[in-house]
């Protein structure tokens, strides 16, 4: 059994040292933007919060934990690592994501930028400002570390003086829009998910003509229940030619992918993901569309475990594929 407090200590320590939940540097967050010609300054900036980029690493970490959890050594090893301060060494063992996973994350972000451009949104990307939002700290109740981290992130964001911050995933959207203002005095920029921005500019998006097939939509909890972003992805998918299939438990009552407990209770997390994966599979559609990197990763892992072949794609990838010339 895993020693949960040791996991939390590792997480908090990593974020205090590097600003990231896993060992790495700023390049890990920003390298995707190389060669895109994005401006550093503008009224509307993209802030990724790093979840897409970090997810391959977090996924590896979760898989490692699941293996540890199966053996008796798990708790002891984590405790020893925590006590000896050899967190970096432990993390080095853990974090080796595949090239394929890293490439997928890059494609998602590149697709989002291209979609925003095609929607006529002038988007800047001050790479030096992009950073991990600290959402995991907040979710785990590590408030002291979270508040320190949030203040640093907010300071960086405020330093560029943007009017609107565009986010790319539900967790970062929520934490920036609703949580930061509670913890960081005076932090009140306009925060919008790229999905909301695209939906606002839907008429400017030129998609290919014709039927793009059926997709089963998996709403992430944070968009559906915390941010009420439910109609927008459907509007965009339909406009791009897809037929949207609603699974059991969709929209406001969507079902969790199990992600939030993956580092504490990996086997429980996997079972929840499998339940969701099965019902999405039974919805009678084609590709499964996710709007969150955590959902994407968890459901993909669940299908692999269940031995079910299912195409899962991020919303941005599906929309990008349908962009007209």
């Amino acid at each position: 059994m895993l020693d949960v407090r040791s996991i939390l200590r590792i997480l908090a320590d990593n974020i205090k040292r590097t600003g990231l939940p896993v060992p790495g540097d700023q390049g890990l967050l920003t390298s995707w933007s190389t060669g895109l010609g994005l401006s550093e300054k503008g009224d509307t900036i993209l802030y990724t919060g790093g979840l897409y980029q970090l997810l391959p690493y977090i996924e590896e970490f979760a898989e490692y934990l699941e293996k540890l959890e199966g053996g008796k050594a798990g708790g002891l090893l984590l405790k020893a690592a925590g006590r000896l301060g050899r967190l970096a060494n432990l993390s080095k063992i853990v974090v080796r994501p595949s090239r394929e996973k890293l490439e997928y994350s890059r494609q998602v972000l590149v697709s989002i930028v291209e979609l925003l451009r095609r929607a006529g949104v002038e988007i800047a990307y001050p790479g030096g400002v992009d950073s991990y939002s600290g959402v995991l700290l907040y979710d785990m109740g590590l408030d002291t570390v979270f508040v320190e981290h949030a203040r640093r992130v907010a300071q960086k964001l405020e330093s560029v003086g943007a009017e609107t911050i565009v986010t790319v995933d539900p967790h970062t959207t929520h934490v920036l829009r609703k949580v930061f203002p509670q913890y960081v005095e005076g932090f009140a920029p306009i925060v919008k998910s790229y999905i909301e921005v695209l939906a606002e500019n839907i008429d400017k998006l030129q998609f290919k003509q014709g039927d793009a097939g059926r997709v089963v939509i998996h709403d992430p909890c944070f968009y559906a229940r915390y941010e009420n972003i439910i109609d927008e992805p459907r509007q965009l998918l339909r406009r791009a030619g897809y037929t949207v299939v609603e699974p059991r438990r969709s929209g406001r009552m969507t079902y969790c992918c199990g992600g939030p407990v993956e580092s504490i209770a990996p086997r429980l997390s996997r079972r929840i993901a499998e339940t969701r994966a099965r019902e999405l599979d039974e919805a009678g559609g084609g590709t499964i569309v996710t709007l969150c990197p955590i959902c994407y990763s968890n459901l993909r892992r669940a299908y692999r475990g269940l031995g079910i072949e299912r195409d899962i794609q991020d919303l941005s990838i599906l929309l990008y594929r349908r962009l007209g010339p």
């Binding site: 909890c221 229940r225 009552m253 939030p260 407990v261 429980l268 929840i272």
Partner: peptide, 13 residues
């Protein structure tokens, strides 16, 4: 016990 809550907010709904 709280650490196993997903924070998914289905209960709140």
């Amino acid at each position: 016990l709280s650490m196993l809550c997903l924070g998914c907010a289905r209960c709140d709904e």
